[in-house]
Amino acid sequence: MIQYLIRRLLYAVPLLIGVNLLTFLLFFVVNSPDDMARMQLGQKHVTQEAVEKWKHERGYDLPLFWNDKAQGAAHLGQTIFYQKSVNLMLFRFGQSDTGRNIVNDIQERMWPSLAISVPSAIFGVTVNISLALLVVFFRRTYLEFWSMVLCVILMSISSLFYIIGGQFVIAKLLQLVPISGYSDGLGAIKFIILPILIGVVSGIGSGVRWYRAIFLEEAEKDYVRTARAKGLSDVQVLFRHVLRNALIPILTGVVVLIPFLFMGSLLTESFFSIPGLGSYTIDAINRQDFAIVRSMVYLGSVLYVVGLLLTDISYTLADPRVRLS
């Protein structure tokens, strides 16, 4: 397994370089270094000299990929791409274009994101699996039919509606929790209840349908019939056998998401004023802050690779027959 993990990690290197290259290309297709400088320097009284000075100080006055004026390896080395990529690959994110330390900002902003996303994910998966098992348990009854109708309705509603509707009903009409905001420590509880609740409820429709499909497939298999024939109750069959055998597809969907819990949710964090990472990248794109954009995209790619690895490892835990080689 160790060899497998090392091999997978080595595969990740060209993948991350590719992602970095793609981010670089996409960003500079839309924004030139001049645009970035003008965005940072403001709209008034900006001269070309000031733009050139800003670019020079941040190394944006170099060619993008190939430096004709340089010699030897410096053809590649004296370029924006190389200069900006080397530190990135070593997780030295440096400073944003407004001068803030990016690692510091990420460390600060990831905790509020985690405060929302971890409970939402745990409660969401628990509720969805429980409801899906119940639906399977009551299959071929009116409950299953109306549950599915309800699920289709729930999954057809946009997440924005859940957020605004939830804020309107629970925070504005019933006045049970604050509409938005955040606080450190225990004070955060009253702020995160509503976004977590909305996160869980908004995921029920699609989640229950998906888990139900997995469980139904398992429920029709021979070992289930055998278990029943041996006299096990439906509850025992579902929770002890069906759930366990359905873990592989469940893990595929769940474990890969774990690293992304750090990245937060743009909509939820915007509407609830949660100072997390969800809006960090979008704000940076709007401000044309390339330092943050490339750092966050790179971090996202690394987390994705880690997520896939964790999924593979989790297979071996869920099913001893699986061997990573």
């Binding site: 605004i164 804020q167 309107f168 925070a171 504005k172 006045q175 604050p178 509409i179 938005s180 905001g181 915007s270 509407f271 609830f272 004023s273 100072p275 809006s279």
Partner: peptide, 18 residues
């Protein structure tokens, strides 16, 4: 000064006196 990115929550909190 509190970060409030969306106008709807801001407006509702104004109406609540916050």
């Amino acid at each position: 000064y509190i970060l409030e990115k969306e106008t709807i929550p801001y407006w509702n909190k104004f109406l609540q006196g916050y």
